[in-house]
């Protein structure tokens, strides 16, 4: 299992050293207790809000309006018979496709930035990063007009490209950093062996870069998964709408089904969590390789 293979638990020296320290010297017990208390407090604060929602999602009106607190599946049934499953599928399709596309495109761009010198490179790299600095909210109208003219509102395609665009700057930035940790000698050796540049990228560099790619892709996925400003404006048909929009619509103006809101929140959060679990050990070790450099 990936989780236990993390390098965390494997430091017999440190562990035994601490063992001695912890149990060998009387009077110092308060410190481990303090650490444990701190850890528990933090874990509680991080997890409790989601537990609250999870429990509420099995109560009528989320337990907010009614004092009746019997267990019920009703919220989930309401949600999925109301077509929420469609939003889940749409989100998955759009986010997976956008993540794949953006990662692919970013790996290519990052490789060029990391391995070649050419005129205007600094400027182009700077411009790519500038994308991170712009408030998206002012882009809504111009982008809406652009997408409509191209016939890409209410389509997976338009949304995929949109999300690809918003995840490229950060992805390029991170991947360029990771690539710097991959020795150039690797490329050169392959080139001398007669491989083409493309082969070098896909056969040699790509596998070595995998942890970096995984973590970058995860960020891109999260960005798409939680985005709602663009989705709100560009997707109006239930057949293509994504989870954040489906969730948002559950708040009527005159009334809202809070139980369904909670169930929807759970349904929106669980897939990302499931996605993260197998990745997390890799993610945290791959994450800062670029930045730390």
């Amino acid at each position: 299992m990936t989780l236990t293979s993390a390098p965390l638990n494997r430091d017999p020296d440190v562990t035994s050293h601490w063992h001695r320290r912890m149990f060998g010297r009387p009077g110092r017990l308060f410190e481990p207790l303090l650490i444990l208390a701190g850890l528990l407090a933090i874990l509680f604060a991080l997890v409790y809000p989601m537990v609250f929602i999870l429990l509420g999602s099995f109560k009528t009106q989320g337990g907010l309006l009614a004092s009746a607190t019997a267990f019920t599946w009703a919220n989930y049934i309401t949600l999925f018979t109301g077509g929420f499953g469609r939003f889940l599928v749409n989100s998955l399709v759009i986010c997976v496709a956008a993540t794949a596309l953006s990662t692919l495109v970013s790996v290519n761009a990052a490789y060029v930035f990391s391995r070649f010198r050419f005129r205007g490179k600094g400027l182009i790299f700077g411009s790519v990063l500038f994308g991170q600095m712009f408030p998206w909210i002012v882009l809504v109208n111009p982008l809406f007009i652009l997408l409509t003219q191209a016939g890409f509102t209410n389509s997976y395609t338009g949304m995929i490209f949109c999300y690809t665009a918003i995840s490229i700057p950060f992805s390029v930035y991170m991947l360029t950093g990771y690539l710097a940790t991959v020795p150039r000698e690797l490329d050169e050796a392959a080139l001398i062996d007669g491989a083409s540049r493309y082969q070098v990228v896909w056969r040699i560099v790509f596998p070595v870069l995998m942890p970096g790619i995984v973590s970058t892709a995860t960020y891109a996925f999260m960005l798409c998964w939680t985005e709602y400003l663009f989705a709100l404006a560009f997707l109006t048909k239930p057949a293509v709408q994504t989870l954040p929009i489906g969730l948002y619509q559950l708040f009527g103006d005159d009334r809202a089904d809070w139980g369904a809101v909670m169930a929807a929140s759970v349904v929106t959060t669980i897939p990302t969590l499931l996605l993260f679990l197998p990745l997390q050990a890799r993610l945290s070790s791959g994450l800062t390789a670029g930045a730390v450099k």
């Binding site: 965390l8 874990l43 991080l46 609250f52 969730l247 990302t272 679990l277 997390q280 945290s284």
Partner: peptide
């Protein structure tokens, strides 16, 4: 490991949901 999984929970929560909660 438990701690790292717990840390993931808020991150996997979309902002819209986080605010409602």
């Amino acid at each position: 490991t438990l701690a790292r999984i717990a840390i993931l929970v808020p991150w996997a929560t979309p902002p819209v949901v986080a605010i409602i909660i």
